[in-house]
Every structure is written in structure tokens, then in C-alpha cells.
Design a binder for these strands. Sequence first.
DNA 1: CTTGACTCTGTAATGGTTACAGACTTTATG
DNA 2: CATAAAGTCTGTAACCATTACAGAGTCAAG
Lengths: 131, 131
Amino acid sequence: MKIGEASRLSGCHIETIRHYERVGILSPTARSESGYRCYTDHHIQQLRFILHARELGFSLDDIRELLSLKEQSDLSCEAVDSITEKHLHGIHNRIRHLESLAGELRRISASCSGGHIAECRILEALQSRED
Amino acid sequence: MKIGEASRLSGCHIETIRHYERVGILSPTARSESGYRCYTDHHIQQLRFILHARELGFSLDDIRELLSLKEQSDLSCEAVDSITEKHLHGIHNRIRHLESLAGELRRISASCSGGHIAECRILEALQSRED
DNA sequence: CTTGACTCTGTAATGGTTACAGACTTTATG
DNA sequence: CATAAAGTCTGTAACCATTACAGAGTCAAG
């Protein structure tokens, strides 16, 4: 099938599919006489895998590794677990970071009771760094 | 003062300071005879403001607007509040998103009990999309 | 006078995706 | 059959914020 159908079946944008091939995430396809890419069901599987993993926030590097592990069916799960755990850990870190930002922002924001720029506590807080 | 001292006083990297000037966040400086940028205390104040706002996750566009509001001391705080609230809102959204990712990842990860790639539930879950 | 530290400009890399231009091919319609 | 429309190709650049680098110029101390 051609790239348009691959896009419809996988849910990935056409440009993104070509991008994945260019960066070596997606296996290269055969080409038709006129140079059109020819996708197989296997490519669709790969694209769905990539899409889902991206939705879960895995990096393309992670995904490249997961896809490669996926091919070696007799290996242990260990490496897959490790990538997943590391990713989960990273997400928790980001959540903690964002929560601390939100906390400081709420504090700063609450200190402002309207009025003029000249007395704005938000701008003051952004200026003075009181941590 | 020259850019090196401005960097030390503000805490911003030299390259970043030049970048801020290039994109119009930082006021352009006077130049010495040999073309070196000459920074004033006002620039240092601006850089500290930018740095702190960046640490709180404000975009450069937000910061550009905040800095411009800061100059108009007789204006109402309203616009500043609005930018801050919008940013806080965005942070909450990101937190919610990350939490839902983390939840799904935990679920997926728990379903894997070791063993071989062939039976790995993590890879299966990434493949099959069961939502 | 030379060495080293500093600064300048311009360009490119990062990550992941999307958008565009200009050329070509295929399919559908008149 | 001709032409229009839709699809595809490649290569390049945009997004955001920052950093890195090359190659040239400047300044201060030894």
C-alpha cells in the first residue's frame, strides 16, 4: 500500500511516517517503479506501536530500542522493563518539578491583590528571587 | 560592563544573553569602540527577571509581554494576573496529562511478570492499544 | 611581543513534528 | 484523449529555547 493508506491505517501523519523512516525508526520500504513507498502490514504494526509509545511519552530513542528488542523474542523482558521504569521515573520527576512550579506560582499570584503595575507583587516576585 | 560580567551577575549564560537580545527580549546595548556590548544595571535587572520567569516556566513570549507591562507602571495589574493564571493553568494541564501517562505506564508495567520478550505484556500493550 | 582570556558574527545542533515549494505520477472526470 | 485533481516524491525550513562551534578580532598581563 502507498503512504496515504498507511497513514490512514496507522493514524500517523504522512510527514511523520517519512520522518520516522528518515531517522531510522521505521524499516525502509520497497519502492514502486515510480519511486512510491510500498508499505506492508508489518510497517503498519510498527507505526501503531510507535504511535502508542509516543502517546505514552517515550522518546524516539527509547522506541528505537523497544522495537529492536521486540524482534528478539527469546530475550528476557528485563531491558523492556528497565526502559519503562526509567521513563516512568522521568515522568514522576517532571510532575514533581511542575508541582513545585505551580506551588510557587500560586503563592506569587495570591500575593497580588489587583491595583497598579507599580505595586504588582507578581512582577516584584519575578524580579527579586526570594528563595 | 561587558558580557562576561553581565553573565556572572545575572546568572545567564553568555550565549543565552546574546540570544535574548537577538530575539528582542533584552534591550539592545550600547557598543564599545571595538564593538563589545556594554551592559548597564538595568540590563542585569532585566536578565534576572527573565531568568526567574524562565525558571518558573514562562515562555519567552510571555516574558516579553511581562517586561513590557513592567515599564508601564500606571497600568492595572490585570494583564499580569492573566498571563500568570494562564501559565498556571497550562502547568496544571501538563501535570494532569503526565499523571494519566504515569497511571497507564504503571498498569502496563505491572502486567509484566518477567520472562521472555515473546510474552512481554509491555510490548503487547504498546502494540495493541486497548483504550 | 606573545600568550591567554575575552568578545564578536554567523551557523548549526538539539527533539519531534509539521509545512512548504516544485516536480512528478496516478486517478478521476469531462 | 485531455485535463484536472489528488497523491507522492525530495529537500529545506519552521517551531521553541538553548547551546556549541569556527574563525576572526580585541584586550590585558607577563
